Amino acid sequence: MNIFYDGRNKKWKHQEKQRLTLGKSSLPLERADAYKKQLLSIQLNEKKGNLGPLIGIMTSRKENYSVAGNGTLFRNLQKKLMEFGGISIVFTPENINSKGIKGFLFLPERNQWIKVETPLPHLVYNRVPFRKIEKTKSFFQATRILQVKNIPFFNPGFIDKYELYLLLKEHPNLKQYLPFTEAVEDEQRLNSFLQKYKNVYLKPTLSAKGKGIYKLSLLDDGIIHLESIKKEIPYENFSVFWSEMHETLTGESYLVQEEAVSSKIDNHRFDFRILAHYDNGKYLVTGIGIRKSKLQEITTHIPNGGEMIPYEQLKTKEHDEFIEFIVKELGTYLSEKLGFFGEFSIDAGLTPEGKYVLYEVNSKPMSFDEMDIEANRLEKLRRLFFHLSKFD
């Protein structure tokens, strides 16, 4: 049924005879007046007098106070939701209180964002793009409101890479896929780790998209070879390396990880990129992509010169079984330990000996370049939103 937004007094109204509410509010909506033709009209589902689903998408502000985040995803989600009688509101943690939210509504037919106010949503999808925001008072207050009001919230937050390693190391079925990893704490421990494994990766525990990653190698003559996405530097010995790099490695949280030698395509390493969603009580694979390195061998991320390859070129029964297994195990375990995960992505590899390796789990996947995977993602999210808000 149609619902109308009156921007003059920032209220949602209707013209039906029955009592209607919107979102999590139990307060009835007002009736639209004779000027309803001048009001914004949106068609929503109705279930037992409640209109929705009303989905909140939590993001954050940029330094210039404009809204940050994946705008393309937000717009496409709105289009998908409106096809099925739902809407989404993009808002920041500062703009929620115990009664409602202030945010932005995307209108596909106008290709326009407008400011609106709504009652509290049926659920909130966490797309806050900056880790520091999840440490703020406003974020904690926002999540507390959702908890008190019993509003589903996913995903719970960014994942620290080292904390994830320690968590998965305790899982009987997942620990076998982990490269040995330690936190970078001091010169002696890092040197001992390098002496043991010879080739290691240094990774920031709180970064994404391959940012800040180095490969460190101990050569036969004692020379230390450091390789990043953009440069290669030889050091006479470990002490010289540490004197130059220790501020970087200890200034922010870093981990050191043994190199898991990757299988190659055309003499370049490749990774599996796996997208997964919670779907009707299970964790299922939404899409699988392959990323091959091209310009450098540190990462396979496309912004760093990686190349996209269709999974069908490498698809095997063994790969399918591993991916389905790890999605199920990871989704269940992470939700049990960290809070409900509605979606996540996985970076995994394969050694020349056929051993699978789990590199990383991302709680807030970016858009996939494969159009079919991204289309599947939108439908999976739509179904999940409707299910959790009880409009399925």
Rank of each mutant, 00 (worst) to 15 (best):
M308P: 11
Q15Y: 07
I326C: 07
L381T: 07
G349H: 00
R382A: 09
E227N: 09
R269E: 01
K328F: 08
V116C: 09
L218T: 13
S239W: 05
S367I: 08
S26C: 03
P172S: 02
L166Q: 13
V128A: 00
L44M: 09
P53L: 05
P172G: 03
I159L: 14
L206Q: 03
L255Q: 06
K364H: 03
S138H: 09
G56L: 08
S25Q: 06
E247G: 02
Y35S: 13
V184P: 00
K36W: 14
K380R: 12
G210H: 12
E353S: 15
D220V: 11
I373S: 04
V67P: 11
T118R: 08
G281K: 04
S363T: 08
I3K: 04
M366P: 08
I224P: 01
F325Q: 14
V285A: 00
M371W: 07
Q296T: 06
Y197G: 06
D160I: 11
M371Q: 13
V261T: 07
S253G: 09
S217L: 10
I265R: 03
V256T: 12
F104K: 15
V261E: 12
N97C: 03
I229L: 09
K80Y: 10
F241V: 00
N70I: 06
K328E: 13
I223S: 13
V128R: 01
D279T: 11
V148I: 13
D33L: 04
I274P: 01
I87P: 03
E134W: 06
E109N: 14
K355W: 04
L123Q: 03
I288A: 06
N45Q: 15
K149I: 05
L146H: 08
E336R: 12
A34L: 12
G56A: 02
L338W: 00
R144K: 14
E134A: 11
L350Y: 02
F241I: 04
